[in-house]
Write a protein that binds this DNA or RNA. Structure first.
Lengths: 131, 131
DNA sequence: ATTGGTGCAAATGCTTTGCATAAAG
DNA sequence: CTTTATGCAAAGCATTTGCACCAAT
């Protein structure tokens, strides 16, 4: 994979962010350093970088894809109200393989555990009956 | 929720299918009984039925949404090649709650475990180097 | 020099919506 | 008879693609 300016800056900026941005959120950030970059380049590179295992693609619920520069294995919670995503710490002595009994002939590569909930901000709004 | 003919037949047909169909796959099936039904009606009803908890919506990886008429709690494997979805049997003595250590202030409603792999058909094709 | 990447705009594909009409309670 | 659902076509929105140009090796 060729190291282009665009590719490097996309990777750098994503690694800085802890918010698991969508492609267009990252585009807005990257544009500040590369004003002429195209959204297509951002999409293409996010795809290539995640194929290469340098970043992670988070795909959840009909919503927009999100990307994570932190590739150390971990789980995520998704706020059902605002869409915010946070990391979740899980017990280290737990393994997905221990859980499957019958995979119906499928060869399983990967398991992923994800959570849905309300983020602290949306809990607050809820308790005040705002929206 | 009003019981219309369309709604009832959509629910009936989905409950019959074990393939976790997409909205348009189900539309094709339902059309055989209701030739004038619109795809919009199928989408609207699948949404209402899943809000009502009568069916489950499966959302996985950028792909099209799939629907499941079987609402008893269970996990799914998604074939990374053909998109096929199957049920997975898991150990009953295992609980998602036992796994989370720190949810960063999120109030967690639900956890879901899903798997990626190759279905038997795609394993076969792979071994024969077809596609 | 050759291959792969970029920017732009247009296309794609799934899903949703506005609106007039029809059916359910 | 009041409300909710339907069918149709059009719109929406995230993402992808074709193509001519450009840059990295």
């Amino acid at each position: 994979m060729r190291i282009t300016n665009q590719r490097e800056i996309i990777l750098q900026e994503l690694k800085k962010m802890k918010t698991h941005p969508t492609a267009d959120e990252l585009y807005d950030v990257v544009k500040r350093r590369l004003p002429r970059i195209s959204i297509a380049t951002v999409y293409r590179n996010l795809e290539r970088l995640s194929e290469a295992g340098l970043i992670h693609k988070l795909e959840y619920g009909g919503r927009q894809k999100r990307f994570d520069g932190d590739i150390h294995p971990h789980c995520h919670v998704f706020c059902v109200k605002c869409g915010r995503v946070c990391d979740v710490d899980t017990r280290s002595d737990w393994s997905i393989k221990d859980v499957v009994m019958d995979a119906k002939g499928f060869q399983i590569f990967e398991g992923s555990l994800q959570f849905e909930g309300l983020c602290p901000e949306c809990q607050l709004k809820d308790s005040k009956n705002i929206n």
